[in-house]
Structure formats: structure tokens, C-alpha cells
């Protein structure tokens, strides 16, 4: 029983990690309907800048996180301006290809010697990892921090999207750009803002990820990014609570299959379950089913 609870907590940590990335994914998707494949790589840049900030540049680590958020927010806005905005009224797939290109560019670019270099770097954690033992079940302070951050992000995003003016603008833009413009919404600015927020969230996710799994390298964003995106789809992409829910489910499914079924077949079973869920709920768990307009 203890080992089961321990596995639940392991799965929780993994799921929360996915949630950190999935939230940024789903926000961008919710606003402009684009799968931003470069999100995982912005996450990587965030991890690198944050880590270099507190280890090499001598910044205190909270400052390093803020610097990293600022850098990634700027990067997100630049990427949107250069690679996505010209394709905004093209077929969606064009922007997706552009996103894949940006993703490759960031990965191969940052593994060049004069950028970050290709090495796998061991990350020194800025604070000690403390393990509490509660009746045979161990919980670390890092897990608590991650959980707190995910909850804060979730509440912040819900507040931002549903209670603020810019959030209203984002929701308007997600319906119809032309109509939004007629209503006096600055579409370009709103989308830039969305990217800035999404990328800043990715930066925090990256730094936390590097603290939890203390290693960074230029290709670290691919898999977490892909899994987080999958989780966002599972939860119903575009739905902010859906991203968290989907991520938590992904985390549990992966952990439980590895723990109780077979670690060899983990990915196969996890994705088979994903496909099954999608067949039952074709728009994700919290996704609203699309009414066909005729």
C-alpha cells in the first residue's frame, strides 16, 4: 500500500512537470489555434538561462528565474513576430511547419559551441533537496514547490483569461480576428502578449525541471514538450484546466504502467490508453464537442 501511494506521488510529480509545459501550450493554442512546437525549446532556453544565471552569472536564484522569464518572453514574442505572424491567415499547417523549423533552429543553434554547446551539464540545485518521510512515503520539498507553482500558474491563468481586460481580448481573438478588431481589440498586441506569457511560463517550467531532474542539454525540450502537448490534447486542448488534468493523467498512466505492468511496454500502453480516451471523448476530456454548423 505504501509503495502504491509512493507511485501515486511519483506520477504526480511527473504529471505536474508536464502541466508546467502544457499550460503554455494550451494557452497559445486556445488563442490562435496553433500547435507551437517550439514551446519545448523555449522551455530548454529557459532552463539554460536560469541555470547559467544563478551558477555562472552570480545572480540570486529568484532573480535568475525572473531574468530567464524575461528572456523567454522576449524570445516568444520575436518567434511569433518573425515565424508565425506572416502565416496567420495561411492554412494552419503552414504555421505548424514554421514552428517545427523554429524548433530545429533553437535545438541545433543552441548546441553550437559558441551558444550553449552540445554538452550534457549537471545542474547544481540552488537549494537543498529535503526529503520528508511520512509513514514510508517520501515527499521532497522540490515536489511541494512544483505543485505550488502549478497551482499558482493555473489560478493566475484562469484569472488572467477570465477576469482581466487582456484576457477578454484573448478570448475575443480566439473566436474571430476580424470581429475582434471591429470591437477595438488590438489583435497583434494580444497575440504577442499571449506568446510572452506562454514563454515566460515555459521559462519557469524549464528552471524547475532542471532543478527536479538536474541536467540540461540543447535537446532536452523535445520529449517533455511532446508529452506535454499530448497531455494538453488529452485534457482538451485550449482548455486551461484540461491541460492540468490531462498532464496529471499522463503522469499517472506512465508511472503506473511502468510500476505495475511493464516498463518495457510503458510508452505503448500509455499511448494506447490515450488513443482509447480520445475515441471515447474525441475532443479531449474537458474539450467541448464541436457542433457542426451547416
Amino acid at each position: 500500500m505504501e509503495s502504491f501511494i509512493q507511485q501515486v506521488i511519483n506520477g504526480l510529480q511527473l504529471g505536474l512537470m508536464y502541466a508546467l509545459i502544457a499550460l503554455g501550450y494550451t494557452m497559445v493554442y486556445g488563442t490562435i489555434g496553433l500547435i507551437n512546437f517550439a514551446h519545448g525549446d523555449v522551455f530548454m532556453i529557459g532552463a539554460f538561462v536560469g541555470y547559467l544565471g544563478y551558477s555562472s552569472w552570480g545572480l540570486p536564484w529568484p532573480v535568475a528565474i525572473i531574468v530567464s522569464m524575461a528572456v523567454c518572453a522576449a524570445l516568444g514574442v520575436i518567434i511569433e513576430r518573425i515565424a508565425y505572424r506572416p502565416l496567420r491567415y495561411a492554412p494552419k499547417i503552414a504555421a505548424l511547419i514554421s514552428a517545427i523549423g523554429v524548433s530545429f533552429f533553437l535545438e541545433y543553434g543552441s548546441s553550437l559551441k559558441f551558444i550553449f554547446g552540445p554538452d550534457y551539464r549537471v545542474v547544481q540545485r540552488p537549494f537543498r533537496s529535503i526529503t520528508w518521510n511520512l509513514g514510508g512515503v517520501s515527499i521532497t520539498n522540490i515536489q511541494v514547490v512544483i505543485m505550488a507553482v502549478v497551482i499558482i500558474f493555473l489560478l493566475f491563468l484562469l484569472f488572467l483569461v477570465f477576469k482581466t481586460k487582456i484576457g477578454a481580448a484573448m478570448r475575443t481573438v480566439s473566436f474571430d480576428h476580424d470581429a475582434a478588431r471591429l470591437m477595438g481589440v488590438d489583435v497583434d498586441k494580444t497575440i504577442s502578449f499571449t506568446f510572452a506569457i506562454g514563454s515566460a511560463l515555459a521559462a519557469v517550467g524549464g528552471v524547475l525541471y532542471a532543478i527536479a531532474y538536474p541536467q540540461i542539454y540543447p535537446f532536452m525540450g523535445i520529449m517533455p514538450g511532446l508529452k506535454a502537448f499530448t497531455a494538453a490534447v488529452l485534457g482538451g486542448i485550449g482548455q486551461i484546466p484540461g491541460a492540468v488534468l490531462g498532464s496529471l493523467i499522463m503522469g499517472q498512466v506512465e508511472t503506473m504502467t511502468a510500476a505495475y505492468i511493464s516498463s518495457q511496454l510503458r510508452d505503448a500502453i500509455a499511448f494506447a490508453i490515450l488513443i482509447l480516451v480520445l475515441l471515447i471523448r474525441p475532443s479531449g476530456i474537458l474539450g467541448r464537442s464541436q457542433q457542426e454548423k451547416i
Binding site: 515565424a83 506572416p86 503552414a94 511547419i97 514554421s98 517545427i100 523549423g101 533552429f105 541545433y108
Partner: peptide, 17 residues
């Protein structure tokens, strides 16, 4: 890899169809 990525981005920006 970098050049390939750039060619990819530029091509789709220039010929979005």
C-alpha cells in the same frame, strides 16, 4: 542542422501554400 532549419522557415514564409 541550423541552415536546414532556416531554409525550412524561409521557404514556408515565402511560399505559404
Amino acid at each position: 542542422g541550423v541552415i536546414y532549419a532556416l531554409i525550412l522557415i524561409i521557404t514556408i514564409l515565402v511560399r505559404r501554400q
